[in-house]
Write a protein that binds this DNA or RNA. Structure first.
Lengths: 215, 215, 215, 215
DNA sequence: CATGAATGAGACTTCATTCAT
DNA sequence: TATGAATGAAGTCTCATTCAT
């Protein structure tokens, strides 16, 4: 019936995806305040008015972007951990590596930077983000640290704090990739791989080390 | 003789400090773009026009805030390092501790979050911040790592990458304190001290360890 | 069917004309700097924001006004000249007369006064005006002077300088009409027709004269 | 008593001259609206407040500048004419030449451009300018034309109109020198001397010519 | 007399949101 | 459903003028 494109029904169904994809791109690139609603619509191939048919405000659009992209993320992370076998160090390494390779450098990683920037002006969004993203992720790592301690792989460290310490480098590099690392700044480039390797090396040395610090 | 306040001369002398303090507060609270020049002026107790008497633009006001607060900072750090005599590990620990206690939790620490958030939209500010803050700080830690290697205290690690790794936890917690940590989010509190201790412990263990990881 | 006015489509089509007409009026009346964008919009019957929907800045609005009104002008002048067959003196006379009757006394003529007044403070507008108006007009007259010389109608005069001299009286009266002549000044009225006739007479006498000035 | 500068009394007397000189410079350079009161004061070597001690507003300062500079001008012109002998053509030539050399290219000449630009917003000033400057100047030239006719030097032309025609080129070039001619515009330079010579030549040819235009 | 810090109205421009078509 | 023209509040910055010193 319509050889040149999706039917109206079909269009209605895919509009949100197009809009969310465009919004993700621009929110990550410019931040929440600096991203323009009109540009999101244009990037999605629709008019400004159409965007407002699906999302009642810029704020709600942003929330939808966060929900859409975080749900997938957390789901995948749980799958990886649930089906995992092997040493805890290896598991942690896998998780960090996958995180880095699949998330941190992608647009989704940029959402974390945007959240960090706008959290002060969106307390409601901040709570949502902590509940749906930060805490689940932290639980994941904390459980892995405990697993390592229980299995005698790790020293008996403070699990929550070490979980934080373990996530920190990837989080930090993720922020860097979407801020200072994103625009070409003369004379300041971080080598993410080297930094991550260095950090992981230090971490595992410190976490696994059985040797005493020399007196 | 003057029951109504400081003289004009005195007022003129303290204006920059009043303005810089107000600007620091609002830039940290709202970010660079969202902070309003007029509100900065009002918080400093002057009119909009008066602010422009002292700083020619919002951008220059921000730069002045960074300089004012960072110059002192870097200066003090250099003094600490220059006159230091202890082990490199101790020096790094002192630096990180001082940084944490005196900067990260204060308003000054919030400036880093702001820069991270706005760097993509204000390239001029980004370049300025890299030149005046990020690179000097990095040089400081890199030099300390090299010192440790030369004195045989540390393994022969990749100094720039490890310098990054060493700063990362404080940077990260600093960001946290001024984003998710700044607004009361139910059920999610990081214990900064514990996290930092955990991280530092891991770091130094990994950095100093002479023992091989058992196969 | 539509008792309240033009349709949206129709409105969109006529907006530029409404805005350009309003802008022409106010730029000529107040000058470029003193004319207010908001007043232009109000005179055109739209809001400030709508004006910016059609023209990205006050400067571009002004350029559009010049283009709109000058393009027609130059085009018509070229047609007159291209299809002309009479003597060069007659052609010049026609051009000057047409210029005077159709341009100099109209709002369009006022644009020249505005440019003259603002050229020092808006170099971009100045360059634009020289490129689009002054130089083309000068070329037209210079070509006519050359035509007259080649056909033996005129003495072998310095064509560029004489072209200037020929245009000068109309230019001058045009400026007068939109400055001192525009506001009712008691006791000082120039009779433009008489002045122009006198000048043209002198000019053609001087340009064509074959007789020697008596010693 | 005061070896380092004028006494207070002396300062009080010369202040107006300093201020008027500075104001003339800046009004001519930037126009009335664009000239800054503060810059006038700075150029005169006094503070903004001092300027307001002598002139109650920017407008009054401008009026004073016009009065100061025009009085001298008209006075000198009358002297030249009153004591003159020789042919009327020579007298007109002298007057035009002197006008060109001493006024048109000087700052005073620029006042005419400024008046032309701002006359619409200063009707009161316009009237003053016509009374004190334009009409006296016109009378001067009209009298010379009549003198030439009476003495049989000129054809029996329309004296007021020809007076205008005769002044026009200098007025026009004067405007040009302080507008388009003042800023370096690529590809458009008028040679004032050549243009003036061309115009004067045409004029005198036309004014004096006894020969008939050939049929 | 002289100063210059301070003011605040007002200019240009942007952009989230609405609504007639 | 979809459009995009239209709005107007709000933001940065300027500058003539005032007045305490």
């Amino acid at each position: 019936m319509n050889p040149i494109g999706p039917t109206r029904q079909r269009r209605k169904e895919i509009r949100p995806q197009q809009l969310l994809a465009a919004a993700l791109t621009l929110f990550v690139e410019k931040g929440f305040a600096a991203a323009r609603v009109e540009e999101v619509a244009r990037l999605a191939g629709v008019s400004k008015g159409t965007l407002y048919l699906y999302y009642p405000s810029k704020t709600e659009l942003f929330k939808a972007v966060v929900r859409e992209n975080i749900a997938t993320l957390i789901g995948e992370a749980h799958e990886i951990v649930a089906g995992a076998a092997g040493s805890s160090a290896e598991l942690i390494g896998m998780l960090l590596t996958g995180w880095w390779e699949r998330v941190a450098g992608s647009q989704v990683g940029g959402l974390h930077k945007v959240m960090l920037a706008e959290v002060g002006n969106f307390p409601e969004l901040a709570q949502f983000y902590v509940d749906e993203v930060i805490r689940p992720a932290h639980r994941l790592f904390e459980a892995l640290i405990r697993r390592g301690i229980e299995r005698g792989e790790f020293r008996p460290v403070d699990a929550p704090a070490v979980a934080h310490a373990v996530m920190t480098p990837v989080l930090f590099l993720m922020l860097h990739e979407h801020s200072f690392g994103a625009c070409p700044i003369e004379g300041f480039e971080i080598d993410p791989a080297a930094t991550l390797t260095a950090h992981a090396d230090l971490m595992l040395q410190g976490l696994c080390a059985r040797a005493e610090i020399s007196p």
